[in-house]
Design a protein around this nucleic acid. Sequence first.
DNA 1: TCTGGGGTCCTAGGACCC
DNA 2: TCTGGGGTCCTAGGACCC
Length: 452
Amino acid sequence: MGCGDRVHQAVQSLSRTTMYALVDGNNFYVSCERVFRPSLNNRPVVVLSNNDGCAIARSNEAKALGIKMGAPWFQIRHFEESDGLVALSANFALYGDMSDRMMSLAAGLGHRQEVYSIDESFLDLTGISGDMTLRSRKIRHRILNWIGIACGIGIGPTKTLAKLANHIAKTAERKPGSYPDHYAQVCNLCNLEPTERDALMLATEVGEVWGVGRRIGAQLKEAGIHTVLDLARLDPVMVKRRWSVVLERTVRELQGTDCIGLEHEPPAKQEIACTRSFGHAVLELSVLQEAVTEFASQAAQKLRLQNGHAGQVLTFIRTSPFRTQDLQYSRSTVVPLRRSTNDSRDISQAALLGLQAIFRPGYRYAKAGVMLLDLRPANLIQQELALEDDVADPGGSRLMQALDAVNQRFGRGTVALASAGLAGEQRQWTMKQERRTPGYTTDWDGLALVRA
DNA sequence: TCTGGGGTCCTAGGACCC
DNA sequence: TCTGGGGTCCTAGGACCC
């Protein structure tokens, strides 16, 4: 052991060594669907994005067919005939509800939890005594038994290493022989001898690392860095100079230095977006106006839900980049609000003003969206002289509360702004969803029937 | 014919201002 | 002959994540 290593160890023992777990549901959306339709077990299944556009979740059997993440449905639908592939429209209300249940059980693993995405959470295990691998297997078993979702659990001294361990745990289970079998389902990198850990890093491609995407991955390989071990052995200072401060942090995390840490509470959002691709190409301004009004009101409702105000409204429209034969057009614009607000009417008005400014006739529009920017807490209200309308209902907040309450009780879109147009089939821009499963846990009409 | 949605952070160029 | 520098805002795009 060199002098530098000894100093390093001394520093490590002074500052308590961190330990994180990452709990991640396997093929999450597909697993949620299978809980209520066991007939889907052992079959290739994909869950499709909005518009039934592309695959956003795949069962192991679907992965084995070579179906890639994000594959367009029209390119893979032949597997329906040839291999019995089942495709379902995404049912996000169901997945959100299953997620809540899974998260509450996963929380039992550590003393703090950061819910990172709908199917993943980090747990802080720092300072907990006992066998973390055993403890993780018990939690995993409980989630599988009580909720019906299979998870992979990875443990490491940094979040990036916990992510890597999680990848190993899931891959070892799905592809026997890819890693030693005992890493399947739960992989704890904190327990390993350096030679064991290096062997795992050597067996893993650099592109699997959290923070290394397609582009950076290709650049690294170009530079002769093929495995996680190659990346972990680079000099962080060189990495910062040649690539970026972001990749430097990733390298340090792979070397065991905790640079990211757990988020104690979700940070305040900086923007709220509502964007959609259309079921069919849209040419008329009037149709875009309906869609933009609807997106603006939905974004405003999200904003009210988190008790915020927005200072700016961004509107964008664009053609389909996949239709290379079409003339392309993509523009966005930001309209500042006179005063920050969460009132659907003011926000829609601003969004429509923006649309007016960027709309050009003669294009086949494929997508539009509204984003709320410059967000702040609603309690920081800028005082100004009340206008006549505002005297009875300052800021329109009582009207908006009533709107939200009605829509909460009777379903989204029961009460809407007139410029959003009529609901249902008369709208020319709504998305296709032809393969939707029932809301098994979120809708009384969707309850599963059990026959004795 | 048919290719998602919601986020974050970073960079760069042009317009404009002093 | 010789034409600054720094700041901000806007717009666009790239990279990553799930």
